[in-house]
Structure formats: C-alpha cells, structure tokens
Simulated assay, not measured.
Amino acid sequence: MEPRVSFITLGVTDLARSLVYYRDILGLQPRSVKESVVFFELGQVWLALYPHDLLAEDAGVPDDGGGFRGITLAHNVRSPEEVDQLLATGAQGGGRLVKAGHKAFWGGYTGYFADPDGHLWEVAWNPHFPHV
C-alpha cells in the first residue's frame, strides 16, 4: 500500500443538513453534489458525505453508530487565536463545542468541535509540526 489517504467519508444522517453545515458554516466548497453523496476537495485528500445507513451497508457493519467511533479529524491552523475562531465557527449551524481551546501537554493549543452527526474535529496550533 502506498502511504496516502485519498478519501475520508463521513456517514451522515441528513445529507442536506450536512451539506449546508460543511458548505455554509465551515466554508468548504463542494466539487460534486449528487443525490446520495457530496464531495469536497481538501488539497490532495477528498472529504465525502454519504448517508450513514448506506455507508454501514456498504461496509457490511451494523448501523447503530453508538458511542465514540474511534476516530477524529484534525485541522491545523497558524495560531492559537485561529483555534478559538474555528472552534466558534464549528459550533454553529448544528455543530457543538466539545472541548474549548486550551494549552496542550505537547506544547501546542487545541480544542474540539463536533459536526451535526457527532464527528469530532480537532483544531490545533502545533509549534512542532510543519505549518499550513
């Protein structure tokens, strides 16, 4: 396997609501909007929104979606102030603040918000990682 991720697909319970959230609240511009899938280009990785029940069916797993899903998405920014700004933005339009921005044990500044389906996004300023 080559060291690359090509798509991140989030199972969502309301595709229209999620499109509005990611487009109008987070400011991502969709590259393709179909009846059952939305695609956003994120540099060299694509973000796809797909109905939760259909994604579970495609993967052959139960559609219970309960509890922590064992994954977070991360977005690095240029400053601690940008962390707080993006956390506030992410908490709008059906999203919610999960963990306010704070100094992290590893020397950066980080916090979390959840999209309308509960997918966790970490927003971080990391002085030790290549900047955006």
Rank of each mutant, 00 (worst) to 15 (best):
P51N: 14
Y22Q: 04
V33H: 11
V38W: 13
V38N: 09
P80Q: 08
D84L: 10
G101E: 03
Q85A: 13
G66W: 04
G90I: 05
K34Y: 03
V45I: 14
A74E: 11
G101N: 05
G94P: 11
L49S: 10
L10T: 02
Q92H: 11
G60P: 15
E82A: 08
K99Y: 06
P30C: 02
Q29T: 14
V45G: 09
K34T: 07
W46Y: 11
V45N: 09
E81H: 06
T89I: 08
D24Q: 06
V37T: 15
K99A: 12
R17D: 03
Y21W: 02
K34P: 00
F68S: 15
R78G: 15
I25R: 01
L47D: 07
L49P: 12
L47H: 15
Y50A: 13
S32M: 08
G93F: 08
P30N: 01
A59N: 09
G101Y: 07
L49F: 15
V37M: 14
F40S: 07
E35N: 10
K34Q: 14
R17C: 00
R69C: 04
A88S: 08
V12N: 02
D58Q: 14
V12C: 06
K34G: 15
D63C: 12
L26C: 05
Q92G: 09
G65E: 06
G67W: 01
Q85S: 06
G43H: 07
L87S: 03
Q92S: 11
G65I: 01
L28E: 02
V12D: 02
G11Y: 01
V20D: 05
L54N: 12
S79E: 14
L42R: 05
R78H: 14
G101W: 07
L26T: 03
A91K: 04
I25S: 01
H75D: 00
G93R: 07
K99R: 15
S32V: 05
K99L: 10
V77M: 06
G27S: 01
D53N: 10
V98L: 14
S32G: 02
Q29W: 09
R69A: 10
L73F: 14
G27I: 03
L26R: 04
W46D: 13
G11S: 06
D58G: 12
A16F: 00
V12S: 03
E82N: 00
K99S: 11
G95N: 11
V83N: 04
D58C: 08
N76L: 11
A88E: 06
A56I: 04
R23Y: 01
E35G: 09
L15I: 00
V38I: 13
E41C: 07
E57Y: 03
Q29L: 10
D58N: 13
A59P: 07
T13E: 07
Q44K: 00
G70A: 09
V33M: 08
A16V: 03
Y50C: 14
H52T: 11
A74P: 03
A100F: 03
G101V: 04
V20M: 02
